[in-house]
Structure formats: C-alpha cells, structure tokens
C-alpha cells in the first residue's frame, strides 16, 4: 500500500518514524506519549481522522505492509504498545455504545436464531435501497471507493481467527473463507471480483489507493475487524462480526446489483454483487449454526462476545452509512477529497 498523507500529529509522527530503519531506541517512545495525549483528548475516537489513520497504518503492517516501510517494524514493541492503547480506547468506546440483545441459550440453534433476529431487526438507514433507486453515477463511484478500503482485502481480517478456533467452528470458518477466496480460482476471489467492479466503474483498483480520500469512520469500520481478528481474546467478536456481515448481505447485494444495472453498468461490473446474493445465502447458514453456534457450544463463555461482535459491526457500519448518506443528502461528497473520484 502506498504511504498515506498524515491527518494530524500522531499519524504524522508514526509515518515519519516508519520511514526510517527499525530501531529500539528514540522516536517511537515519543509516539506512545503522543497517542496517550490524543486518546485522552479525542471527543469521538470512531470519527477521529488522525487516530483512525494511525490505527489503520499499524494494522496494515500485519497485512500487505506500507511502501517504503521496513517489514521489521511489524512487531516493534513500541508500535504494539501504541496499537494496544488505541485498541483499548476503541474497544471501550464500542462496549459502551453498542447495545446487546437479550442473550439466547448457549446452543447452536439458540445462537443462530438470536443472530438472525439481531441482524433482521436492523432499523438503520439503508445504503442498498439508496443505491438501488436513487444514487447518481458519481455517488456509486464514491460508494465503491468507500467500500474498497475493506473489500480489496475482503475476508482477510476474519482469516486471522482460523488458528484460534477448533472443531466445528474452525471447519465452518474455513468452508466460508475458501469460498470467499474463490474456491481455488483467483479470478473468483471476492476481492478480485470487487477490483473488477472498480475497473468497470473507471476507478483505480489498487489496494489502498483511495485511502487518502476516505473519512475516519470508513477506516474505523475496517479497523474494527482487524482489531477483532488480531486479538485472540476477541475471537468470539470476530466470529460474530462475520456472522453479522453474512446475514445482512444477500438482500443488500441484490439491491446494489440493481442500482449498478439501473445506471447502465455491465454484468462484469455487477458480478461482485450478484455473487454475494448467492454466496452469502450459503454462508449465513454456516456462520450462524456451525461457526458462531459451534464456537459458543465449545466455549460458552464467548456467547456475549459473539453478540458484541455482531452488534458492533452493525453499529459502526450504521455510523458509516449515516455519514455517507448524510453527505449525499446535503448535496456534498462523502469523501475527504472529492477530486480523487473524477481523477
């Protein structure tokens, strides 16, 4: 991923630190002090440009890396310490903001039914209905740009969970992820189908190439899954997060496909959305019963975190949708730099 532009003192210091060789002394301790100060001062971490970009870059060291940054920075203790501070603050914000439903019995059937009910009750604004009926060409391009931050690495954050699961839950996760990764056919990988949609809409399909254009809340949505995926402690939450994504996907993607065709885009551009209608109708069943239900039957203490992960996914993505639709309704762009779209 190319180096992003910093958005404040903390991301600026981080990117400056990362541009040098890894070192155990100097520089990085300053980072920790800067993070502590910024975390204490921020009114809303989920919408904090500087801190969400910082967290995104720290996570990126564990994915594809950042151009010009030495790979050996990945496990630098001061960076891990910085990441943990941001994660703790973000998790704590979400634990207070997210309301959990009444928890079901810790059985596969109970967990599946509870998750279907939670995800079916979503009363938030609907991006998919807007795209289906109303969005302009410019707006669907923005929609793709917003989505690209996660979707060009679709499935990767949940894959971190595989070695932390066992038995039925693990087999279910692998079955879902194998399908996400195209069942052995690289062109069928969901991230590759999404790249095809971006090209079809005349956009740059390189991972992270629109990072500078997207707002903090879009990074917060991606950071949520990276945080859940990279912390074994939160394996219940990443499983709930995936279940919630699968359970809210089929119908939404049918509407997205309709919107793209309404605007005259071809089948190749809509293929990503078509694929998800069918794929996620399979995945949601496996995710509810075998993945989430199987995990809770094996580890009943994770019941609450499974529901926390699912509810947190819906909360953060509702914030993101409100931001985007709010901007569009006001006649403006949902991006930080709208020039990127027409470039």
């Amino acid at each position: 991923m190319k180096q992003p532009e910093p958005r404040g003192p903390v991301s600026s210091l981080l990117l400056e630190t990362l541009s040098g060789p890894e070192q155990r002394t100097s520089g990085s301790r300053e980072l920790i002090a800067a993070v502590d100060e910024a975390v204490a001062a921020t009114p809303d971490l989920a919408f904090d440009e500087d801190l969400q970009l910082t967290l995104f870059c720290l996570f990126e060291l564990h994915y594809g890396g950042i151009d010009g940054v030495d790979d050996s920075w990945e496990w630098h203790p001061d960076l891990i310490s910085e990441r943990r501070r941001l994660e703790q603050a973000y998790e704590s914000q979400l634990r207070s903001a997210v309301s959990l439903p009444a928890l079901p019995a810790p059985t596969s059937a109970g967990v599946a039914a509870g998750l279907f009910q939670l995800t079916g009750d979503d009363g938030g604004p609907s991006m998919s209905r807007y795209v289906a009926k109303t969005a302009s060409e410019e707006q669907v391009r923005e929609f793709l740009i917003q989505k690209s931050i996660y979707t060009l690495k679709e499935a990767d954050p949940h894959t971190w969970a595989i070695p932390r699961l066992t038995g039925r839950a693990k087999a279910a996760m692998v079955e879902i992820q194998a399908d996400e990764y195209g069942g052995g056919v690289p062109e069928r990988m969901h991230s590759a189908l999404f790249a095809q949609s971006m090209r079809g809409a005349g956009l740059d399909d390189g991972y992270g190439n629109y990072l500078d254009a997207v707002p903090a809340i879009t990074l917060a949505s991606s950071n949520l899954m990276s945080m859940f995926g990279l912390n074994r402690r939160l394996r219940g939450a990443i499983v709930g997060h995936l279940a919630s994504y699968e359970m809210t996907s089929s119908q939404a993607n049918r509407l997205y496909a309709r919107g793209f065709r309404r605007l005259g885009y071809d089948d190749a551009t809509a293929a990503y959305f078509d694929e998800h209608v069918e794929a996620d109708a399979v995945h949601e069943q496996i995710a509810g019963r075998d993945l989430a239900g199987g995990l809770v039957e094996a580890e009943p203490a994770l019941l609450e975190d499974v529901f926390f992960g699912a509810a947190a996914a819906m909360t953060v993505d509702t914030w993101m949708t409100e931001h985007i639709l709010g901007a569009w309704t006001a006649g403006s762009s949902s991006l930080r730099t709208s020039s990127t779209v027409s470039a």
């Binding site: 279907f116 079955e175 069928r188 089929s250 119908q251 049918r254 694929e275 069918e278 996620d280 109708a281």
Partner: peptide, 24 residues
C-alpha cells in the same frame, strides 16, 4: 459456482434452484 450450495425451499428466490435469502 461453489462446492456447498443452499437450495431454495421457500419458493421466493430469484436465483432458483439456489437460495438468495428471500425466505427471511
């Protein structure tokens, strides 16, 4: 297009014989 498939049982899918989540 996939190994494991979900077959429509409610009759409302537009992708029959596959499920598209319409049962919900």
């Amino acid at each position: 297009s996939r190994k494991t498939v979900a077959l429509c049982r409610c009759g409302a899918s537009v992708l029959k014989p596959y499920c598209d989540g319409s049962h919900k």
